[in-house]
């Protein structure tokens, strides 16, 4: 079988690390091929033009070839304007990238997930939308992985969600009505808002954060996210 060639694939770099003497090992999220591992030969040379380009947050068109786990990058071109993230956006971006690296297997294409990522990268630039941006991406990531949240009914008995009621959430079994103060203590209205993609209400945002953290923890397993440590380290300021 000849080496597969892929041309001008919309992509974002998730992570770059030095590889051998002068190369970089790139993890990229791409439109049709999902997460791919690429070797960028010579990209770590001091004067390489690729060095500045192969950074998270930069919309790219990547071309590569190869069949194995690691493919060879042939070219990288900027696709659209580069907006530099400020420090806070950068931290949030690192969090999203860690989620992808941990949860998304390589070479598994999810065009819908890519468009969720594009939305997130654009939203993170604006400080006021960072939190909502993270929640939306987390939900769309779970959808793409086949772990989508159930938000409109209780799978256990088929009953619709009551806005005034309180719910717990079983990561494998969906929402379950409880007396207030028990379990995750999510408001029914928050679940409905999340289903309708409405996050302007503060309680919804707080509920969504607790719920998604709980569900993501189930899928991430024992090892905690390193980037969460960073957010916790910034305890003095409002948490994302």
């Amino acid at each position: 079988m000849s080496a597969q060639r892929v041309d001008s694939q919309p992509a974002y770099v998730i992570h770059a690390r030095p590889y051998r003497e002068t190369s970089l090992l790139i993890e990229a999220l791409t439109l049709d091929h999902g997460r791919v591992g690429l070797v960028a030969r010579g990209a770590a040379r001091p004067k390489s033009a690729l060095r500045a380009l192969l950074q998270p947050f930069v919309p790219l068109h990547l071309s590569w070839q190869g069949n194995g786990e690691l493919k060879t990058l042939r070219s990288a071109e900027p696709a659209g304007m580069v907006r530099r993230p400020d420090g806070r956006a950068a931290l949030s971006g690192l969090y999203l990238n860690e989620l992808l690296q941990r949860l998304l297997p390589r070479d598994d294409g999810h065009p819908e997930l890519f468009s969720a990522y594009v939305d997130a990268m654009q939203g993170l630039i604006f400080p006021e939308s960072v939190e909502v941006c993270l929640r939306r991406f987390e939900m769309r990531l779970l959808d793409a992985l086949g772990y989508g949240l159930v938000l409109d009914h209780e799978p256990l008995n088929g009953e619709a969600i009551v806005p005034e009621a309180a719910y717990d959430y079983d990561p494998h079994g969906g929402p379950r009505r409880t007396s207030a103060g028990l379990g995750l203590n999510l408001r029914g209205a928050s679940l409905a808002n999340m289903a309708a993609n409405r996050f302007d209400d503060e309680t919804t945002r707080a509920d969504a954060k607790r719920l998604l953290r709980q569900v993501l923890r189930t899928h991430l397993g024992e090892r905690p996210l390193k980037s969460r440590e960073l957010f916790q380290g910034l305890a003095a300021r409002k948490q994302v």
Partner: peptide, 19 residues
């Protein structure tokens, strides 16, 4: 460095210093 990781690091340290 003016990289994404460098910016994140700078932000983290800045918050620390402001305290």
């Amino acid at each position: 460095n003016p990289t994404v990781e460098g910016e994140a690091t700078a932000h983290y340290i800045a918050e620390m210093a402001r305290r």
